[in-house]
Design a protein around this nucleic acid. Structure first.
Lengths: 150, 150
DNA sequence: AGAGATAGTTAAACTGTTTAACAATTAATG
DNA sequence: CATTAATTGTTAAACAGTTTAACTATCTCT
């Protein structure tokens, strides 16, 4: 592969990944409305899917410090979406779950997000989108390997 | 396309785009060092490429309000990377350019970022990466159309 | 029993963001 | 020409998310 080709691919990748991330964020923020932010949505999504988890787990999963999680959970808790339950066996641990209100709210926004993602996916042939996501997932694996090597 | 297939693609897309964005951000932040943030890097990159531009232009390009640009530019200015020049014809306008120090600094980090992107790209066949970026750019266009329709 | 590890919180500081108000300047209109 | 509009950029206040460092409470391990 020539040096120019590589450089061109690198530049295209940096440009397009930045642009798409930016636009998706702004369009998804519209779907979410003013009640909740992007980051809060991802936290809600995670807890909804696993049912219950701890701050430590969230911090690992989202690759941020625990105090960052505390801040987000506090905001979700103030909105009435999150329940905190102390583990009676190990009283240091706090389990985080969605309240009923939190579940209902999440399901509502999940549907909106799904519609939005489906909308832009429908502009592609299924095979092209499958190939795209396959490579995207492979890229994710590559990045995990790079991180591990450090 | 069956409903399950679509839903599976949607879920995979949301998961992988979130994960990759997160990992790239954290790995790129490492390359950038403590001197500069991700957003500051993208602003620097933009000005480096166009040579000179205004706050209004940056605000449009990055899809944020002008006051957000002022904040970032102030930080880059404090570091000595940015020069502000008033237009003598239209004295409302301020042209932003890189100082010599800013150019040298940008070139240094650009090389690091290039190495990093090249590193993970080298794990793919060229044809696969080209196909991936093609679809990625198509996705960018689709998102632009969706935004315009609103 | 005491030392060290772990889970979570709090407080301070910083970056990036929006909204709203503002100053300076230019453009448009009667 | 004078006044009103619009535009450019800044400032200030408020908020979300982040890190670092200190702290409390609890558990683990000799």
């Amino acid at each position: 592969m020539s040096k120019e080709t590589i450089q061109s691919l690198i530049d295209r990748y940096i440009d397009v990944s930045f642009s798409v991330t930016k636009k998706e964020e702004s369009l998804m923020t519209e779907q979410l409305g003013s009640e909740i932010t992007q980051d809060q949505h991802y936290i809600l999504r995670y807890i909804y899917r696993v049912g219950s988890c701890t701050s430590t787990k969230l911090a690992e999963e989202f690759e941020v410090k625990k105090s960052a999680i505390t801040a987000i959970i506090n905001r979700l808790w103030e909105k009435g979406f999150i329940k905190r339950t102390r583990d009676e066996m190990d009283r240091r641990v706090v389990y985080l779950t969605l309240t009923e209100q939190g579940e209902i709210f999440y399901q509502k926004i999940e549907e909106k997000i799904n519609c939005f993602v489906e909308l832009f996916m429908s502009k592609f042939e299924q095979s092209e989108m499958e190939q795209f996501i396959d490579t995207y997932e492979k890229l994710n694996q590559v990045l995990i390997e790079i991180k591990d090597k450090q």
